[in-house]
Design a protein around this nucleic acid. Sequence first.
DNA 1: GGGGCGAGGTTGTACAGCCAACTGTTGTAC
DNA 2: GTACAACAGTTGGCTGTACAACCTCGCCCC
Lengths: 252, 252
Amino acid sequence: MAGKAAPLYRKVAGDLRAAITAGEYGSGARLPAEDELARTYGVSRGTIRQALGALRTDGLVTSRRGARRVVLGGGGARLQSFEELRSFARWARSQGEEPGGRTVAVDPGEATEEEAYHLRLPVGERIFRVLRVRTLSGVPVMVERTTYPERVGELVAAMDPGLASHADELEAHGVLFSDALHTIDVVPADAADAELLGCRAGDGLLRERRRSTDPAGLPVEWSQDRYLPGTVAFTVRNSSGSRAMGRSLNGS
Amino acid sequence: MAGKAAPLYRKVAGDLRAAITAGEYGSGARLPAEDELARTYGVSRGTIRQALGALRTDGLVTSRRGARRVVLGGGGARLQSFEELRSFARWARSQGEEPGGRTVAVDPGEATEEEAYHLRLPVGERIFRVLRVRTLSGVPVMVERTTYPERVGELVAAMDPGLASHADELEAHGVLFSDALHTIDVVPADAADAELLGCRAGDGLLRERRRSTDPAGLPVEWSQDRYLPGTVAFTVRNSSGSRAMGRSLNGS
DNA sequence: GGGGCGAGGTTGTACAGCCAACTGTTGTAC
DNA sequence: GTACAACAGTTGGCTGTACAACCTCGCCCC
């Protein structure tokens, strides 16, 4: 029951994160020096730097050579862990909303060129296509069209159509997600979207496409989510030196 | 003209990045072990790990304990550096498009509560509001509404209204950008948007709001960009363990 | 009051080494 | 043949050290 022992640097990072969000360091305040943190936590400076590196990529603090680190006021927008972001159900619960949904269709099929490309499979390979409607407190907010490779799709196909969270179930069967590439844009609702979401065809929907891979780098899903306008927004943190975000021309 | 000497780990990272995008390691291929890379580059393992860490946060490779690193096929979506993402003009040029734009209005004013919040200023502080239309090859694709704190706004106000890139000019005056928090959603075009972009009022536009800060953590802009549907998409890379992205309820 | 200068403080980069945790493979036993 | 065990290979985590680059702040001078 003890769970895995967290590495030292994670404990330190969690501690500092808590201290910051609890307001012990106001927005713009300077953090203690690395050497001092190392002494107070009784660890080496390298470990402290690992912890601070995590806070930096989280966007909680700045850092530049020669000056103490500065706390960046969170700005209200909470960033979520990968797990919360990946699972609609977990995310909704973390926001105090009641997630729901129903599986409209689960169809086995053969990979089109596009699907094969994103799932790194040969064209024609067996895949599963799943169409779901997601709700918050009973109100439909999103249509999700996902393509799974066979081994994952079989698990999804066997699930209860009313199940709120596929993510939990997949995890229980040993399907792990570790990386995702998201593309976010706007697309007009088609007839099916309009029917399922209760909007008019042609209305602009917020679209998120993503390809997720497991820790070994194998694609586990290729998904396209369409949100009603005004329901959700995506937040992204970004800093110089990292290349985690981009903007692309919309060719199609 | 030699520019700054890049740190060792950046050279190594650049080298590996080039090798990967050049296809020397196909999608799914395994990278050489850290020790081997260290020998071939003649540096310590720590330096190699720093380089690989950069590639990992860029989403080019996976990594897990016990197994060699695996190349994640880029999937076609190119991620841009912070600088390219920040500047519309630089981004456009990097995509082979001709950026343009005109400054519609530059108005000094006093910070509203919202502006004061995002720029970390007292309400009523002097700020500048700038409205611009951005074009690609002469076609309007985006409306940009930015609020600057006084010291930055003064520089912008003095610029040529037809200048393609404010970013270059600001940089020349010592205004540096280092972090940004983006919020992406869909919003209906208002009358002004419709007029400037040549669409109908009520059409769904892709909206990106961002607050950017300098290396010391001081806000330097609070901006709201609205893109015509179908012109651009945003891409984000995301992996377990990092908290760089989120999804939020749209309260307003 | 303002500007220049220098000393000390702080983070960035790089090296070396050690052990633990985990993976993939090989080979053995049944 | 198949399941299991041992092993070598590999990355994660942590410590310690040294120096370089850079920032801040106080001091001095004007």
